[in-house]
């Protein structure tokens, strides 16, 4: 199942290289939502972008989608830099689609399910270019069935407020699938859904990869979800990827202190001793110097960094962004030293 082994030589379908996104805040200072983030996703691969709010995961997803133009760095699609002209973006959106975070709010309350799903089909003239000469009704039906809403015509004339949370999410996925994209970006696809429905939506995403060969980027704060469906994981902290690798590597043997802490607080019964970090992610207008995680780092606090002789480096020496390769990598001074030792 794991794609990572064979994929190293294959060209990524979508790739972010050193993407930096700045927002001007009201007080005039600059918030750096992304500070050199690298990510690559291959065809048919499911990559989870994991982090807390404020980690920049949604900003990275929006940058991949072309909704956010990076201040520096670039997004590549199929080897070519993203064309931000109106035409270029139009073509791009045929290939890459996104399902936004808030399923309930993402549907126009005055449009029926049919209208919502047909929107992309009409915008991109999909009926005219359909090789099998199908009508718009056929295409909408096909998209809805692909998203697991069967029989599709029963839902055509429903309005969003008449749908359950799970159905809304499926309609949104159907709307994206109607364009026959090669890649789907899903921002927190199940966080607003009830627990018993989450599994079905995740199974749908897995099925889409299986049947349509869809590559999927799933943005989430939920490590359990990543364990459920992702091939690879990129853990983000304060605008950077701090650890990346296959799901088994990152969740099975985490190396970054932040990943370890995140993993330890997943509520379960017989846990590992939870490492509860104090405070919250700092304000992106004031990214700490040295390693950006050092003020909250448990390894620095408990002296294990000092024991390895890297505590000075942690506080003063910034780390280079992690390159987006399939290999398990960590942005941590302590880890670098420990790795050399072993």
């Amino acid at each position: 199942m794991s794609v990572a082994g064979t994929a190293t030589e294959e060209q990524p379908l979508i790739e972010a290289r050193g993407v930096q996104v700045d927002f001007a805040t009201r007080s005039g200072s600059v918030a750096r939502a992304l500070d050199g983030a690298d990510l690559s996703v291959r065809r048919g691969e499911i990559v989870a972008l994991v982090g807390e709010s404020g980690s920049g995961k949604t900003t990275l997803a929006r940058s991949l989608m072309g909704l956010q133009r990076p201040s520096s760095g670039e997004v590549f699609f199929d080897g070519a830099p993203l064309d931000y002209s109106i035409r270029g973006l139009r073509r791009f959106r045929n290939q890459v689609q996104m399902v936004l975070q808030d399923a309930a709010g993402s549907l126009n309350p005055r449009q029926t399910v049919y209208e919502s799903v047909a929107e992309g089909i009409r915008l991109h003239g999909k009926v005219a270019e359909d090789p099998q000469g199908r009508t718009e009704v056929d295409l909408v039906s096909a998209a809805l069935s692909d998203a697991g809403l069967r029989p599709p015509d029963r839902l055509f004339l429903r309005y969003p407020h008449e749908l359950s949370g799970g159905q809304k999410q499926r309609v949104l996925i159907a709307g994206a699938l109607a364009l026959r994209p090669q890649m789907l970006i899903a921002d927190e696809p199940v966080s607003s859904l009830d627990a018993s429905i989450r599994g079905e939506i995740l199974a749908l995403l897995l099925g889409l990869r299986e049947e349509l060969g869809l590559g999927i980027v799933v943005v989430t704060h939920d490590l359990g979800l990543a364990w459920n469906i992702a091939d690879r994981i990129a853990v983000m902290y304060l605008g950077r990827v701090v650890e990346s690798g296959t799901t088994e590597e990152v969740l099975g043997s985490p190396r970054h202190p932040y990943t370890k802490a995140l993993l330890s607080v997943v509520p379960e019964i017989e846990h590992i001793e939870p490492i509860v970090l104090t405070g919250e992610i700092p304000d992106p207008t004031r990214i700490p110097g040295g390693c950006r995680f050092h003020p909250r780092c448990p390894a620095l606090a408990d002296g294990s960094a000092a024991a390895a002789g890297v505590d000075e480096q942690c506080r003063t020496e910034p780390l280079a962004p992690l390159p987006a390769t399939g290999v398990h990598r960590v942005a941590c001074h302590l880890d670098t030293v420990l790795n050399i030792v072993s």
């Binding site: 627990a195 018993s196 989450r198 599994g199 995740l202 359990g224 459920n228």
Partner: peptide
Amino acid sequence: RALSGAFPRIGDPAARYAPTGLAGDP
């Protein structure tokens, strides 16, 4: 059982690529 299955044990190979959930709505 379905609710508890929605929170997979990380590291449990049985939960890899096998999300569990219920069909339908309350």
